[in-house]
């Protein structure tokens, strides 16, 4: 995600990483990990787990969060939820694709992005004509 952050900023999106660690632990990570040191977006602290519970990622009894990604539009409406077991990493590249699709749909009312859509590819206009055609 750190490497692709500039691409998200070009699309006028902000990224927040969140964990149940405190801001001081975030600093410790930033100071000691080469991967985390590349991060330029805000690293949010959720030590109470309240945000994680609200988003459905809190692991009760453990105090940690699952890996979850939530894409929110400019009106504050949630558009994408992706939650993984902590043993399975996510793809920032795929998230970028989802953001591009969400932006396209917002800007082109009436059109939808089919599976694996990427910018430049064909979209669909839902109608009775599509019934049985996909």
């Amino acid at each position: 995600m750190a490497d692709l952050y500039p691409k998200f900023r070009e699309l006028k999106a902000e990224v927040l990483s969140v964990s149940t660690d405190t801001v001081y632990v975030h600093k410790a990570w930033h100071d000691t990990s080469k991967a985390i040191a590349k991060i330029r977006f805000p690293m949010v602290a959720d030590p109470t787990g309240n945000l994680a519970r609200e988003f459905g990622t809190y692991i009760e009894g453990v105090g940690l969060s699952l890996r979850g990604t939530f894409l929110v539009d400019p009106d504050g409406v949630l558009k994408v939820i992706e939650i993984h077991d902590n043993s399975i990493g996510r793809s920032a590249k795929e998230l970028l694709r989802k953001l591009q699709a969400a932006i396209f749909v917002r800007e082109h009312g009436g059109e939808v992005c089919p599976a694996s859509w990427e910018p430049g590819k064909e979209t669909l206009k839902p109608s009775l004509d599509l019934v049985g055609q996909i």
């Binding site: 995600m1 006028k12 999106a13 927040l16 964990s19 660690d21 410790a28 990570w29």
Partner: peptide, 21 residues
């Protein structure tokens, strides 16, 4: 509000290297 927002939750915990710091 007014821009797209991505909230990415992680499992991250304080590991031994960060604890030394």
């Amino acid at each position: 509000r007014g821009q797209w927002l991505i909230c990415s939750s992680t499992r991250r915990t304080l590991r031994s290297s960060a604890q030394r710091s």
